[in-house]
């Protein structure tokens, strides 16, 4: 009896442990609970909202790209989310790529082509730090996968700034107060605000909408395979369920005489 009780106590302990991992906020160093947003790509059938992706690219190009690179994405990748080749060429042509050496051994710059990676704002990490007071604006390509609860976290971060730090909090020089950043002090100045961009499709340019659009875009840059993955997954799952059902039927039939 005692052992039985002990067993159940210990297993309860273990289960409680597993459950509490899920509910404990991971930001041990400070930072509020991250509220969940509803995203178009959530769920087994989710896809990226194409209009939001277009607006998000605009936000990246007009706002984020002055500090953050997007090294893992190529201009040609925009073809996968509905941009025509002419649109891609027209977008890329605004950026300059260093190429070479030419026949004289000199490096030269040329207009970016669809096959090029997104051109970043800085030549290297040192240059980036020098322009940003020592802080390094990280590459955004994988950001939604590189943070816990990535999409919700970035949305919360972008909209979670406070103009004044709460009483009792002393901000370090050049730092800003953010509810959701671990430690609450972040070097990045509030990157988006109402009407920071102008949308051609007439969508509202509230801070929340801008944050929503850029997060959608970054979710795509992090997981460009997401739509293909989910649609192939559905077919594979249906196939496997059918096959496994048949295997089970066969197993029952073969074993029937034994029992």
């Amino acid at each position: 009896m005692i052992k039985k009780t002990l067993t159940s106590v210990l297993s309860a302990l273990a289960i409680a442990g597993v459950v509490s991992t899920v509910s404990t906020p991971s930001q041990a160093a400070g930072g509020a609970e991250i509220p969940s947003q509803s995203w178009s790509w959530n769920g087994p059938f989710g896809t990226f909202d194409r209009a939001a992706l277009r607006r998000g690219l605009q936000v990246y190009a007009e706002v984020c790209s002055s500090c953050h690179s997007l090294d893992l994405v190529h201009y040609r990748d925009l073809g996968n989310i509905g941009f025509s080749i002419d649109e891609i060429k027209a977008f890329a042509i605004d950026y300059e790529v260093e190429d070479g050496p030419d026949d004289e051994g000199e490096m030269f710059t040329r207009e970016a082509k669809p096959a090029d990676r997104f051109v970043g704002p800085f030549a290297n990490e040192q240059a980036a730090r020098a322009s940003n007071g020592g802080a390094y604006p990280p590459d955004l390509s994988l950001m939604t996968k590189a943070r816990k609860n990535g999409a919700n976290y970035i949305y919360a971060l972008l909209t979670g700034y406070e103009e004044e730090a709460p009483d009792g909090v002393v901000l370090m020089d050049g730092m800003n107060y953010n509810h959701y950043f671990p430690g609450n002090q972040i070097a990045m100045a509030p990157p988006v605000d109402d009407d920071y961009v102008e949308y051609a499709d007439g969508t509202s340019t509230s801070k929340e909408q801008i944050a929503h659009d850029i997060v959608t875009f970054l979710a795509w840059t992090a997981e460009p395979e997401l739509e293909e993955r989910k649609s192939l997954g559905l077919k594979v799952m249906i196939f496997l369920v059918v096959l496994t059902g048949m295997l089970y039927g066969l197993k029952r039939k073969i074993w029937a005489k034994l029992h």
């Binding site: 196939f239 059918v242 096959l243 048949m246 295997l247 039927g249 066969l250 039939k253 073969i254 074993w255 029937a256 005489k257 034994l258």
Partner: peptide, 26 residues
Amino acid sequence: DAALSTSDSDEKSRRDFLLVATSTIG
């Protein structure tokens, strides 16, 4: 042998069909 050769031939053909279908799909 007892398991493989059932007295009921109807039963057997049903299993054979299932075997062929499952093997094909697999």
